[in-house]
Simulated assay, not measured.
Amino acid sequence: MIKIHSTKKLFAKLPLDESGILTNKLVNADARGTGGSPLGSWHANLLTLQRHNCILFVHDAKSFLVFPANG
Rank of each mutant, 00 (worst) to 15 (best):
S19M: 10
K9G: 05
H5A: 08
L22N: 08
L56K: 08
I55V: 15
D30T: 15
S37W: 00
A69P: 02
D30L: 15
S63P: 00
R51H: 05
F64I: 14
P15A: 06
V27S: 09
I2G: 01
T7G: 09
D30C: 12
A61V: 08
L10W: 07
V58D: 06
M1E: 04
G35F: 11
A29Q: 15
T7C: 13
L49K: 10
L16V: 10
N24G: 04
K8F: 07
G36C: 10
H59K: 05
P38A: 05
V66G: 04
H59M: 04
L16K: 11
S37I: 08
N53I: 02
P38E: 04
L22V: 07
G71P: 10
F64S: 12
V27I: 14
R51D: 07
G36W: 11
G20A: 05
V66F: 13
I2E: 08
L49Y: 05
V27C: 10
N28K: 15
H5P: 01
M1P: 04
A12P: 01
D17P: 06
T34R: 09
T34F: 10
F67D: 08
I2R: 10
T23E: 11
R32P: 00
N45V: 07
I4Q: 02
P15G: 03
T23V: 13
L14T: 05
H43Q: 11
L65Q: 12
L56D: 00
H52W: 04
K9M: 09
G36D: 14
D30N: 15
G71R: 07
A69D: 09
V27E: 08
A61E: 09
G35S: 12
T48I: 02
F11T: 15
S6R: 12
A12V: 01
I21M: 14
G33E: 06
L65N: 11
K62Q: 09
L56E: 03
L49G: 01
